[in-house]
Structure formats: C-alpha cells, structure tokens
Amino acid sequence: MSADVAPARAGSLPIADGAIGTVPGTIAQAITLSRYQLRDYLRSRRFVLMIAIVVAVGTILTTLVAYYRPVGLIDNANNLYGSLWGGGAAFLILFAGIIFGGDAIAGEFQNKTGYFLMGLPLRRVTVYAGKYLAVLVASVVSILLFLAIVVGNAVFYLGVGAVGDLGQLFESFALALLYLLALMGFVFLFSSMFKTSLYAVLVVAVLFLFGFSIIQSVVLALTGTEPWFLLSYVNQIIAYPLTGVPEHVARATIGRATITNYAPTYFEGIAVMLGYFFLTTIGGLLLFEREEFT
C-alpha cells in the first residue's frame, strides 16, 4: 500500500479478468433495467391507483352516454370515439405521466434506490432511458385500458361493425402517444431537477392542471396571440382525426367585442410536441448526469 503522490495516468487499461460476464451495451442494459422497473410499477399501489382512475373515468363517461343516449353520438362511431377518447385521453395521459414519472428520477435520490443501481457498471443515460421506457410502457398499458373501454362502448351501441372504424381512432392514439412522450420528457425534466419526489410531482401537476391554463388565458387576454408553445394547448390535436380539424383562427363578434379563438394546426401540434420531447428529455438527462448522490 502506498500513500505517496502517484504519477499521472496515461489512459485507461483494459478490464481485468476476474469479473463474471461481459457488460452489455447501453441499449441492452436500458431494456433490462426497464423490465425490472416495469415489474416494480405493475406490482405497485401506484399502478392500482392509475387503473382505478382509468376505470373511474371510463365508468363516468359510459354512464353518461348510457343515461342520456345523445343522438349523433351513439349512432356515429367517430363522434362516439371523439367524445369519449378525445375527452379522456389527454387527461389520463397527464395522470399517467405524473403517477409513474413524477418520482422516476427524484425517487432514485430520495428513496436511495439510486445507490443500488449506480454502483453497477452502467452509464447514467442507461438508468434514465430504462426508467423512461418503463414509465412509457406502464402509461401505455393504462391508456390502452381506457381505449378498450371506449371501443367497448362503440361495439355496444354500434355493433361489431364499429370496430371497422378504428383507423381514425388509431391515428388519434398515435397522436396521444406523441403527447405522452412530450409530457414524459417534461415530467422527467422536473424529476431530475429535484431530489424530492413530492416537489417534482407537485410542480408538474400544478403546471398542467392550473399553471398552463392560466398562462394560456393571460396570453390570449393580454396579447391576443396564439399560445402555440403550450403543451396543454397543442394536445387538442389528439381528437382531430375523430372530430375533424377546426378553423385555426375563429373570430366571433358579440356586441362590440370580438372574441378570437385559436385551435392548433396538425403541424403546430406535432412540432411543439416533438420539441418538448427532445428538449425536455435532453435537459432532464443533462441534469441527471450532473446530480450527485450526496
């Protein structure tokens, strides 16, 4: 043993023999990690909570349709899908993102599970990607359950023939997935920012449930410009394949006042969601790379 000042190193040496196995690549490790993380999610109370929320929302919508049996809704597959799926998907995606992703990174610090993972020969990006994948799959499982409830309603009112109209529903589902990716990037950014899960969850929940709505109203009222940069605004495009694309700018005159309403275009919606996805995902990863397990 020596306690002297050692000479400077000239690069790394090869891995010594002795360790069992050859460490897999980053992608293979991320998939492995996501499998076990997903297993943890699917057995957890949070998954039961998420399923309960999906079932509750599905039950409420099903009951309303069954009670009022609105004409134009129960005799048209796209209208029915548009109302049920379009109405509930964005809301449920928000909950899934928060419930599964809110503490995804913050929890590694707060619950000390990171000490178990980060002692293993893997890069931080592996942990980030593995958890991202697990949250994505757990969220998609929840959303698919809601989709099944929606399709079940359609089959009940319109018969098995309603299933033939699934194409537009799948388009809408694809947009919902894009929204989920963007939202998860946002959630992971805040989860990486805080070492306390509660803060991460609260910030995202407050922003999406109240903050963005307030910003949207303020932007419209003060500047009269389109709030195209808000994720909570562009998520309207999820319903477009079912309901059709509304007018981008609609002006209505009431008395002497003119009210302007905006609806995002497909391009805006997809571009903003992709932007959120890439920027927030990379931002969150950079934060996680620099965070210390003190």
Partner: peptide, 29 residues
Amino acid sequence: NGISVQQDRKRALAVCGDLIETPEIYPSL
C-alpha cells in the same frame, strides 16, 4: 484496476462490487 472511474465508470465498475451507505432495492422486487 487502473481505469478512471470519472472517465469510464462502466468499465471501471465492471470488476467492482460495492455497497455504499444502505441502498434501497425496488420494494416490489
């Protein structure tokens, strides 16, 4: 083993087993 942990943590930790503080394992596992 001569590999910089800061420059290449994956290779450095490949030959290492560690226990720092009291780590938690995912509770459902």
